[in-house]
Amino acid sequence: MRSITNNLTKWLGMLTIAGMLFSSCSKSNNPAPDPKTDTPAASGSVPFYKLQRVENFSAPTDDSAPTTAPPVLYFSLENKAQAPADYQKTARWDLSFSNLYNSFIGANNGKDATNPGYTANGVGGILILKQAFETVTDVPADKDFSTSKTFGTDDQGAFGEGTGWYLYDFGGNIRGDGSYNKQHVAYAMPESRTLVVRTATGNYAKIKMISCYKDVFTADKWFRDTPHMYFTFEYVIVPKGSTKFEIK
């Protein structure tokens, strides 16, 4: 009789424990992990594969002090807008316009000590091709992009610094007719130059520089007194990892 009672006590104990375990296990009182939505740091508003045109992106100039480097200007291709100078150390811009008349164009890279974006998270680079915009179809290899170079005056004109996107006609007799009004004209060369940029976030863009004069986009309307510097350019962005520039 005592042994039966003892056995029953053991069973009761075991069943109670099991019951507690089952009941605790089954209760759904653990809240589900909080799912989330990411808000990217530098989300661009410009769609991929669509041709964009920027007209008269303005850089204040001082013709009385032509050799004094003005403050650097920043432009976001991803947002198709100027970026404030305060954003220099961010990935919120893709092009820098610096040096002589803000005419030298560079990219945003945080790892290059010579780059304005040094120490920030930009991964950009830039190169220039001796091709017309329409004929540039392949995205160049990453190793070909420079993180330190800027491109401005071309060797075909005065004060050339290698291959550039414009020709400076000092005397007015390279592209002009030698007249006074055609002296000191800067000729963009869309027919034979295309800038290719890796943006601060790693996408790719090809850029056709069209003019640096206000509201006029063809060489016949560019004169020494035409208001400048007002950059007009077209570009298209393709996503990171692309091998082709396509316009859809």
């Binding site: 909080d34 799912p35 989330k36 939505t37 990411d38 808000t39 990217p40 740091a41 530098a42 954003y87 961010t90 990935a91 919120r92 920030a120 998270n121």
Partner: peptide
Amino acid sequence: DPAISVSQG
């Protein structure tokens, strides 16, 4: 320059 994640939706 912040990157912010928020609850789903």
